[in-house]
Design a protein around this nucleic acid. Sequence first.
DNA 1: GCCGGAGCGTTACAATATAACATCCGCTCT
DNA 2: AGAGCGGATGTTATATTGTAACGCTCCGGC
Lengths: 167, 167
Amino acid sequence: MAERKLPGRNHDHAACMADALRRAERLCYERGAQLTPIRRRVLELIWTDHRPYGAYELLEKLQAERGRVAPPTIYRALDFLLVHGLIHRIESLNAFVGCPRPSDCSAGQFFICDGCGVTAEIADKALAQRIDGAALELGFTVSQRIVEIRGHCRRCHLPEQDEAPVL
Amino acid sequence: MAERKLPGRNHDHAACMADALRRAERLCYERGAQLTPIRRRVLELIWTDHRPYGAYELLEKLQAERGRVAPPTIYRALDFLLVHGLIHRIESLNAFVGCPRPSDCSAGQFFICDGCGVTAEIADKALAQRIDGAALELGFTVSQRIVEIRGHCRRCHLPEQDEAPVL
DNA sequence: GCCGGAGCGTTACAATATAACATCCGCTCT
DNA sequence: AGAGCGGATGTTATATTGTAACGCTCCGGC
């Protein structure tokens, strides 16, 4: 059921990120979409780790590298990455996270640790189908399923104290 | 499975809203919480219909009635109503919708029509359990399940044109 | 050459949300 | 009665997130 794990102790993130970038390049190539330096860099920044990044957080990083970057620059890059499924928006955080499987990402569900920020995407088909079934009963046509589960990962397993997220 | 329907043609909304207000009053009384005039009025405004309302939309309505209402007033009322489960926040819209069953609302799922804005809450236990099952596999402790299904209701059944929401 | 579209820069602003401090009012304790 | 306290609200200012609108440049096709 869970097709991805929360990144664990032995996670080789350099390889993980390199894979993501390679997939992005291939997918853009196949579609004739331009993964320009800015777009590519924003994607890299998002893949810094498995936490969602806010637009202005990315903006600051880009500004540190290039000076004078205005919000639309970031938002345009994010739009591009969203449209091509290379990232997802986490609605409950107003933030963006890399998609590990950009070619098939319409049914993703997110588990977001409020302790460390780590976010895992799974693709539980049965869950998506159950949602579609409920929609059918309501006569409702689904265009987007937003499933964001907030809580604590194993390592942050302290759900009672409302700590500030360790961002 | 679907425990609520999308409000249909024969929906008696006056009664629906009156019920909601009565439930809110009883629940606050039982908990010793104060449903003050502002809080009550905000709840009424949210129950104007079954669409989510933004904080500033509510603010304008309240200002029309009372003049000079500042944002914190609204946000404080919304916080109160959220804490007591009388309303829900729709994360993907930054907006708020009334909860039809405030005493048992931890497992709600929302179907949001992008045409007319109508939002229906259902409480599919099996869906919630499936999410919890996936969480268990990940070693993840769930504190909140956000399920927001965007699409079109039966009456707005035109999913291909991206119309502006008829708010 | 020139046109058109994509990408980006720039300015200004809109929309959403909160921090911090002041005031008021009802309650309790003495 | 007066002091002190907590909850609710008022007030001011500001933080955070997101967009509109316009113009420039570059590049590829005709």
